[in-house]
Design a protein around this nucleic acid. Sequence first.
DNA 1: TCCCCCTCTGACAACGTTGTCCAGGGCCTA
DNA 2: TAGGCCCTGGACAACGTTGTCAGAGGGGGA
Lengths: 369, 369
Amino acid sequence: MLDNITNPTTAPTRPSRKTEDLRTVAETARRPEHRYGNRPTMKDVAARAGVGLKTVSRVVNGEAGVTPDTERRVQEAIESLGFRRNDSARVLRKGRTASVGLVLEDLADPFYGPLSRAVEEVARAHGALLINGSSAEDPEREQELALALCARRVDGLIVIPAGHDHRYLEPEMKAGVATVFVDRPAGRIDADAVLSDSFGGSRAGVAHLIAHGHRRIGFIGDQPRIHTATERLRGYRAAMEEARLDVEDSWVSLGPTDPERVREAVTAMVSGPEPVTALFAGNNRVTVTAVRALAGREHPVALVGFDDIELADLLGITVIAQDAAALGRTAAERLFRRLDGIEEPPAQVVLKTTLIPRGSGEIPPPPSA
Amino acid sequence: MLDNITNPTTAPTRPSRKTEDLRTVAETARRPEHRYGNRPTMKDVAARAGVGLKTVSRVVNGEAGVTPDTERRVQEAIESLGFRRNDSARVLRKGRTASVGLVLEDLADPFYGPLSRAVEEVARAHGALLINGSSAEDPEREQELALALCARRVDGLIVIPAGHDHRYLEPEMKAGVATVFVDRPAGRIDADAVLSDSFGGSRAGVAHLIAHGHRRIGFIGDQPRIHTATERLRGYRAAMEEARLDVEDSWVSLGPTDPERVREAVTAMVSGPEPVTALFAGNNRVTVTAVRALAGREHPVALVGFDDIELADLLGITVIAQDAAALGRTAAERLFRRLDGIEEPPAQVVLKTTLIPRGSGEIPPPPSA
DNA sequence: TCCCCCTCTGACAACGTTGTCCAGGGCCTA
DNA sequence: TAGGCCCTGGACAACGTTGTCAGAGGGGGA
């Protein structure tokens, strides 16, 4: 898949007796035009400056032991040739790439933007670049991406898991790729993870609704194979149980979070003879669709959503906020501590969530209910 | 800056007469523990499988010319050693990295998430990975990032410029780094660019307000050194001029888009003896703050914002929408066409914007005005 | 004057992979 | 059975950089 590095349809090796001919072909093939566009190398710089290769290397890397005069000559040669060090070669030689990989679900999701940015900032502070890819919630794609990053020899990997089995990363981790999971724990391996308190947050949100008088509360969440989805459902059930409220099957809906599915689920729960009076939305996408679906209903339905959303303050949406940037930052810091050689057993860090009441969660149930 | 690839404080080269000693030191240093964690190489695989190096390479790359039996032996060796090809070395040898760089302003900005994702998808379709970095609107950081990416020998570069002088990229582009600018044009060099129609969109938005009866319209935009900011202001002025409306100095405010500054600007414009009756917001961040600042005012102020925003439909905010994903996709496609060797003169592609009326832009001015 | 040491410099190998080319063996044909 | 061809496999160099080490040159002390 991620494999089609140019395969420049090599000239058919038709045999020939004349070595000169072959030599010519070889020479031509050896320097295809787009090979780095024939960029100057340190060797070229050295030749131009009339110094040795290693001296150029020293200048480029600011190592000590070069006379000012020599350094100047080298610098001039660098300037005039437009030389730029080839970090690919450097990486090969040094064994560290100064880059980390981030596998997330969807870079376009407003939840992951700040997370990714936070990781990037920490990486930058450590002089590393960030390569990121979206798994689109597809375990196979997650694996493909993560392994491609390992093949690039990223120093570390931050993964927001789509799948539930990460044993495929074991050889990589053993080989020294620092790995931290975020937002969801790793499956079937022992690894660092940084999570939000989905269970606790959800329980608090549902308890909030119960405290405002609701007894019939619906839960709409993501697909059950996603860890946070089931954790949040667990929080919902826990809160209901603690209030000694039964949960009817029709009050719970897990599944894809596309608008159509969510809209249907919302409509089903708030209609009928015995509708729910409040909804708990399992993530930002669900919340958004729920708000749209509920807008303009005559009997307002209370709503609490997991994840904060831009403009939620203006719309008065009560949410359980998690700090995406903090997730990313914490994970990245842990990653770099590992890269700095600190040995600790793998651990899970759980970040607290915050209930932000803004109105939608404080709507009381209709008197009839 | 991006330079601190491990510098493993080399053992002080204290001179010694005993060559054996030095040899030992050298051997130890040659294989520092964390050098790829001593990963197996093709050589190791070859030894284990009892075949030649090149044969392993052939198997790994799925090249023809290996007997099924040999292939099986090699595969087994790969499995049992946990071998994974080192793409760093591959890249060095092949000259193409199958990766592209994306320099944007802020990955956490909801406008850039979809853009970045779109670039990623196109890259993925071409078997390339995406390295991205945020310039934080700092020209120096943009340059640092772009050049670091070039040093990594990315095949191509997509840049959302923060600065106005991109001559620093000329040697890179000459050396074959395909480069496409997005959202804003390149400065002082001739290069591909994919833009939204800031001028036209802004003009249409302001004309929309004028058509609804407004005569006193304010413009709040980003810093004047940002191309889109001045283009949108130009669109504002054009619309006003076409309607033969004078623009008072106090109606125009350009500057940083942090909430404090924007809030002050909004307040200043809508207060006083002769307030504006409508506002045009120069980008998503301004729009958001403007909506907050205007919320709860007794006399509603009309508002049109540049960039669509999540939930804007529910809040009834009229916007000039641009398609961030299309920007990214178009730019990436152009990039890969260049990488495929298509030679065309650099061109600017301008994508249309869409006016989406949702209410806030259709509020008439108060009768008194 | 000679020797030692220190500073600066460059030759060389190595990083792990792939492209080129050659060799050996099996098979087919004459 | 010999000759030629194809198929498979391997030796080797090269990609561009950095670490090691040795040599050249100069200065200072004995």
